[in-house]
């Protein structure tokens, strides 16, 4: 079963898995929040490519008919459904990316850093310095 044809036919999946794991590694290992977002973008692009590669037919063409709508039945078209799905996914991906970046800007404004470790340290010290619940009221904070 494992022959040359099988390997060539599955190379695309393996490439996209490598790309996806690169993104996953960046998301897990990097402490910088902007880098985490970049990693997420790489991850989702690899999923997009995976879907589009499923829809490809060798010898097929883009799923667009001639403008005069004279359709030749011998022409093979690639599968248009993954394209539609991914078109939606790309736009939604940009929406989530922009939201994540806005949150990062806000975190930077509050904490003065976008490094995960430093945020944890600041959070920990804030918690230990505000043990009594009345501190908030006395300082005029909410």
């Amino acid at each position: 079963m494992i022959n040359w044809e099988f390997i060539i036919g599955h190379l695309n999946y393996w490439f996209f898995i490598v790309l996806m794991m690169t993104g996953l590694y960046i998301v897990i290992a990097k402490g910088n929040l902007v880098k985490k977002v970049v990693g997420l973008n790489i991850f989702q692009t690899s999923v997009f490519m995976f879907y589009i590669s499923i829809g490809k037919v060798i010898g097929g063409t883009a799923p667009i008919f001639p403008v005069d709508m004279k359709i030749d039945n011998n022409i093979v078209y690639s599968n248009p459904l993954p394209h539609v799905l991914i078109l939606t996914a790309i736009v939604v991906g940009v929406a989530t990316t922009s939201l994540a970046l806005a949150l990062i800007v806000r975190i930077r404004e509050e904490y003065g850093t976008i490094e995960e470790d430093e945020i944890f340290i600041i959070e920990h010290e804030l918690d230990s310095s505000n043990k009594t619940p009345n501190t908030y009221k006395e300082n005029g904070h909410f």
């Binding site: 599955h10 695309n12 999946y13 393996w14 996806m20 794991m21 037919v57 599968n79 459904l81």
Partner: peptide, 27 residues
Amino acid sequence: IVIITGVTLTYGTLDMPNFGAADTPSQ
């Protein structure tokens, strides 16, 4: 974590049809 996930996913692709085949369920 990344290597384990990658190997698992690669194992999952072994059942996938060849790239560009016209007789796959998705087509």
